[in-house]
Design a protein around this nucleic acid. Structure first.
Ligand SMILES: NC(=O)c1ccc[n+]([C@@H]2O[C@H](COP(=O)([O-])OP(=O)(O)OC[C@H]3O[C@@H](n4cnc5c(N)ncnc54)[C@H](O)[C@@H]3O)[C@@H](O)[C@H]2O)c1
Ligand SMILES: NC(=O)c1ccc[n+]([C@@H]2O[C@H](COP(=O)([O-])OP(=O)(O)OC[C@H]3O[C@@H](n4cnc5c(N)ncnc54)[C@H](O)[C@@H]3O)[C@@H](O)[C@H]2O)c1
Lengths: 211, 211
DNA sequence: CCTATTATGTGCATAAATTCACAATAAGCT
DNA sequence: AGCTTATTGTGAATTTATGCACATAATAGG
């Protein structure tokens, strides 16, 4: 049963990772998987896999393993990815465009329904995906009209907090931020940051210890 | 002093994060910062900041704070970002192009010196940044010739492991992987994965608990 | 030169996350 | 049915990371 208050944060992150190979296996027609196998595919320990899943219920069959289809469904349900989400992107530069054209998001239920920019030269342009770039001053209106719940920020860092405030003001409850700066949000708005250079610096650190 | 074996992994990640606001402060002419202020800017506790830094030495002045310029230099030295790195990108789709055009990397000493693709229609094209897309079969040759140490993978997931093997074979010691799949590397090759959809699923989980 | 003030550096306590090890249980076999 | 085998689910032990609280050291002011 879901003792929902006490779930470790890393567990949530791993659940998403578990779903990747499960999807592939399911597509390939596999029916069953052992914690040991899934662990290996994800680079974690088998006990970790079992414990992560056990936080939410008993999804396996002792002595047998996990039914792949059922397990995937459970994980998707836990992560609330068994429904459709509507998102918008603010800042349609190189990264924003790469995001909106990537069909991985769509396939997982993350639907971009509006994209914004403040550059007059970009506003009004229609993208290959069919969306037209809207001016930043329509953010509030369109978020409400289209019922957008997740906002993606891919503006330069200096604009990120201003944009975040605008999104929060418009009722957004979750933000994915690609600008390499921390943005502040009230407690009722979740933020996840993606900063590639931090990852690179991690690599550099490890390389530096060798060479 | 560097008891280098016992540094927590999260500490390394945070060091990179500390450097962001420090760079901004330095540019703005600030000279001094307190652990409390830096902590606030990064969303961590002041004790955490001090402890993280203390793993590597005594960089502050008691009763006074940290000299911003010196601290930044120390952090860069620890992370080995006080030197230049040469990298290549394999897979010049939307994401690969966004990465190579982003001057943030260059500014931090991460220099893309070669980019590869397997699509004949893309090979030979010259990008705004001045690099020409090379065929995948020149990966080995160019990595050696240009002394490339870090490889970036932005191919579809199905190709990622194959590409990784090629990079490892060519002597690469660190890989930044954007394909949403785990890649296996020998112990002497570090990997960092960047998976946006995992972050989104994190957000969805938190949203799901509310609405 | 001494005292008050301030903010760092750090040993110790606490909390969080992972791993261990085994009891529980399902399925197959005889 | 009972016995064997396999793998899950989980409490307890261990490891890892964070936070606390104060000793330490530097500075400023009288
Ligand atoms: N491109 C990458 O590979 C990459 C990698 C890591 C981080 N990032 C970060 O992601 C962000 C975007 O990167 P990019 O390469 O697409 O940059 P970019 O300069 O190509 O695009 C930024 C876009 O944001 C728009 N913009 C600026 N202010 C705005 C505002 N207030 N409202 C709406 N739109 C606004 C600009 O007009 C521009 O189109 C940056 O913060 C960058 O540091 C990018
Ligand atoms: N675009 C995004 O916003 C985004 C977001 C998250 C993850 N990703 C992931 O990043 C990767 C790249 O995304 P994208 O949007 O640029 O995809 P894309 O399809 O636009 O580009 C992939 C490129 O890789 C090339 N390629 C394929 N096999 C290759 C090989 N063996 N050697 C060299 N090149 C090869 C293709 O020719 C193509 O140019 C994908 O795995 C994607 O899932 C992308």
């Amino acid at each position: 049963m879901a003792k929902s208050s006490k779930i470790p944060d890393p567990t949530i992150e791993r659940l998403a990772q578990y779903s990747r190979p499960l999807e592939v296996l399911l597509k390939n027609g596999a029916l069953l998987i052992l914690s040991e196998k899934l662990a290996e595919l994800c680079g974690v320990s088998p006990a970790q896999v079992r414990k992560d899943l056990a936080y939410f219920g008993e999804f396996g069959i002792r002595g047998v393993g996990y039914d792949i289809r059922a397990l995937l469904q459970e994980i998707k349900h836990i992560l609330a990815t068994d429904r459709e989400w509507t998102l918008c992107i603010v800042g349609m530069g190189n990264l924003g465009r790469a995001l909106v054209e990537n069909e991985n998001f769509q396939r997982r239920g993350y639907n971009f329904v509006a994209v914004f920019d403040s550059d007059p030269k970009k506003i009004g342009k229609t993208l290959p995906c069919g969306l037209t770039i809207e001016p930043a001053n329509k953010i509030r209106e369109l978020i409400r009209k289209l019922g957008i719940t997740i906002g993606v920020i891919s503006t330069p860092p200096f604009e990120a907090q201003r944009v975040a405030n605008l999104l929060i003001d418009s009722g957004i409850k979750a933000i994915l931020n690609f600008a390499p700066t921390r943005i502040r949000t009230p407690d009722n708005c979740a933020v996840e940051n993606v900063d590639f250079t931090v990852k690179l610096e991690n690599l550099a650190y490890h390389l530096g210890k060798i060479s």
